[in-house]
Design a protein around this nucleic acid. Structure first.
Lengths: 114, 114
DNA sequence: GTAACGATTAGCTAGTTAGCTAAATATATG
DNA sequence: CATATATTTAGCTAACTAGCTAATCGTTAC
């Protein structure tokens, strides 16, 4: 698991913002570049880093490339890492602690119940 | 939420390894430095980055500083980010898709039905 | 083929990061 | 106070990253 690649892709304010934009819609590189007031080549590089890390995917349609987030990958990577490092936390313990932590807010984290 | 700081701290092979070591035990800076065959000042910098991001904490006991992982913080940061970006994924849907993922390689585009 | 448009690659500069060695800080001990 | 140990800070160089402009590639339209 190349976690470093994932974290490197996420360790950038512009890239986090790009992901935030893409979390709600599929956008072309040009649209994103407009929103960010950033030169297109600079943005293109960020997109390639994100795509190379598997966090987004680009689909070419004519002369446009539509980028969209790959939520599954992001989730699997981060969740997998959590289970790797926070070994002591079983799913039930997580649920328990989340309830204790914020009684009003925050949904329970699903797990394998075991 | 300063996610960038967290991700920057995690975007480093040495630092991921340090966290891996600390996930199982509390160690002093010197012990970690020995394991990594890395100059102590270099390691010290990594430790300070991790501590500054809140991922580890150092407790001074005499002339030693015992570093240990702050699993809670790591979990909360990453889990919080997941819920921020992967907004469409409700807990139940996550469970469902994890199961479905094993049988089909093309996960459906997430909708707003959460 | 030529022009226009969308996006990326190439090449450059400025700022940052990673590693080192040497010096400094802090704690125990005599 | 002087010494030894544990860790960090300071200062340096090499390598990397981020951003830009200019040039290139691919597609659509004429």
């Amino acid at each position: 698991m190349k976690m470093v690649k994932t974290f490197e892709a996420l360790a950038s304010e512009p890239r986090l913002k790009i992901l935030a934009y893409l979390s709600k819609a599929t956008l072309t590189a040009g649209e994103i570049a407009e929103r960010f007031d950033m030169a297109k080549p600079s943005l293109s590089k960020h997109l390639s880093i994100l795509e190379n890390a598997g966090l987004i995917t680009g689909v070419k349609k004519g002369k446009f490339i539509h980028y969209s987030i790959v939520s599954d990958h992001i989730f699997n990577q981060l969740d997998g890492y959590l289970q790797e490092v926070c070994t002591v936390r079983g799913p039930l313990k997580r649920e328990s602690e989340k309830k204790a932590d914020a009684t009003s807010d925050g949904p329970p984290t699903p797990g394998k119940d075991g």
